[in-house]
Design a protein around this nucleic acid. Structure first.
Lengths: 334, 334
DNA sequence: TCGCTCTTTGCAAGCGTGTGCAAATGCTGC
DNA sequence: GCAGCATTTGCACACGCTTGCAAAGAGCGA
């Protein structure tokens, strides 16, 4: 590739009639340059189309400005909303996002973290899956910060951001009971993600405390189709439930659609439905789903500000955020 | 930051008892190393947790392996689906995606491209917005490849991937007519994106050729709420349309919801609806939307394989892909 | 064993940047 | 004009890697 190379600080220096260090200092905040030379450099840089090489800068400073986002199922409403918030806020704080898609095999989170190390990312934010301990240790040892979102892991070192899933589940249980429901069900996927399991656990426990049993049904992976499948299971029983808490809004949408169009049931008259995430579709008038809002902006804020801050950081940082209940019409009363 | 630095090739070399070049060559495909030293190096690297520094490698090779994805409205179903396909295929071909969110101001696409230059990205793929000519020229001059997806721009140099929007619009017009519709409408946003305008233009033209007028209504930006707003406009007219082609599935979902729940109309009995993109929600049983499928995997494939290929590339590369009509129940007949 | 060829290895230069250090410059007050 | 000081500037080295080049080693037929 003998293509024209990028213009370097050397060339700018020559054009501006100053030393290369002057150029470097012009583009380094907090460095000592006189306004006069600074202007000369800026002019020359503009004329030549010079841009600091962040690869080289990262090499020198041992700080690349890159933050890896490790995600699966990017196309999903909740994931993409979180992605949006994260990239936005990372950019605001001068970082840049590297996106790694882990839809493939199972060890791919580890592969992704390896990639993050290769590019000397300052940090990695994991939205899906859970990496092996050996690899997270490697990251931490190399000074790479780690954030786990909704992973609910108990390992030391990374920042762990979680929601009050169990508490939310308890709140929705009482809401169901208050709406007059007595035959509760929980719709889950088979993903077994910590946060999904926490919701299930919390719901079953809270219902138990209220003296009610819960029919738990799990199917496939966490999407619309699984919601339909679970509806198939739950609504062909002798005794249909009169309230179902779906681990996820996508499951809830699938469930509602099946209940209405396949079983001719009315929500909330025949059955109350609640979800989790507050994806955009939950507010669409076909669903009007009562659900818990993932505070994506706050999650992103917590993550990014923790990355930015180099103040004394606790040994084992952990944040638990509150999921607000968004009340719509998929539950009676309110 | 006096934290333990990453382990370097030097340390691996010492541990393995070879020269630093041997280490480098071990991790460079196509380099000449004897199997014996290679194994010694690999063992040492594994033991020390060594990973090639891609920043430094990129600096030397003048090829970073980074591809910038420049996107706005990441949370949107179509965008995130495209993002998924692109990251997937980029990773398969050994590249890595850098994600830049341009939701902010208007000049932010230019800012994003500047960022791409700073990180010496090998290429940038633009999914939203249109950069200034001066900045794309700068990219091209520096040997950075450029891909414009659905931008329909006529500038030279970048690869432009577009769909046959106008033809698709014509196909749906005849489908409407065949379904017995005579009062056609087109629902658009005010974004004015080339592809959206092409659909509008094509629909109006095709309808005209069939001897029919089209009521065109535009509102806000390209989302669900705008679909509702357009429905408000169209369905309070003296003469309601009996078929509406929405520039986007999101618009169509909003339109359908308003038509049904606010105007108590039945789709497709009272009004036929079609969309564009084939987002996941279009297949949900609440919508069952007839729409055109964006061939996201094929788009991603075209983009990525063009980036990978260094064969003789045409002066002014352009690809036009076909959007398949996905027939569901939002149009009568079929 | 000796040439010959082919492979492997180490040396050293270079990629584009940041930054400590010492020299140079500018400024102030006498 | 000059000492004293703060600010600016240039030099040179470092960062971790790739790669051309020449030297060293391996393999082989006679």
């Amino acid at each position: 590739m003998s293509q024209k190379l990028f213009v370097s600080a050397q060339e700018v220096a020559e054009k501006a009639g100053v030393s290369r260090s002057a150029v470097s200092r012009t583009f380094t905040s907090g460095a000592s340059v006189s306004p006069k030379t600074r202007q000369k450099v800026l002019d020359a840089a503009e004329a030549l189309g010079y841009h600091v090489n962040h690869l080289a800068r990262g090499l020198m400073r041992n700080e690349s400005g890159i933050v890896c986002l490790i995600v699966s199922e990017i196309g999903t409403p909740y994931r993409s909303a979180l992605l949006r918030a994260l990239t936005q806020q990372l950019q605001n704080s001068g970082k840049i996002a590297m996106l790694i898609n882990t839809d493939r095999s199972d060890g791919s989170v580890d592969l992704a973290l390896r990639q993050a190390i290769r590019y000397r990312a300052d940090a990695s934010i994991i939205l899906s899956g859970l990496p092996d301990k050996s690899i997270t240790d490697l990251c931490l040892k190399n000074g790479q910060r780690l954030v786990l979102i909704n992973r609910d892991d108990d390992r030391e070192g990374p920042l762990r951001i979680n929601l009050d899933d169990e508490d939310a589940a308890a709140r929705i249980a009482t809401a169901f009971v208050r709406a007059g429901c007595r035959k509760l069900a929980f719709a889950n996927s088979q993903a077994g993600t910590p946060s999904l399991m926490a919701r299930e656990r919390g719901f079953v426990a809270a219902a138990g405390a209220l003296g009610l049993d819960v029919i738990v049904e799990r199917f496939g992976h966490t999407g619309y189709e699984s919601g339909r499948a679970v509806a198939q299971q739950l609504l062909t029983r002798k005794e249909r439930p009169d309230a179902v808490f779906c681990a996820t809004d996508l499951l809830a949408c699938g469930f509602m659609d099946a209940a209405r169009h396949q079983f001719s049931m009315s929500v909330p008259d025949h059955i109350c439905v609640a979800g989790f995430d507050d994806i955009e579709q939950a507010s669409w008038s076909s669903y009007q789903l009562t659900t818990f809002a993932q505070p994506v902006d706050m999650i992103a804020h917590e993550a990014v500000s923790w990355l930015a801050g180099d103040a004394a950081r606790p040994e084992n940082p952990s944040v638990r955020l509150h999921a607000d209940l968004v009340w719509r019409t998929s539950i009676r009363g309110g």
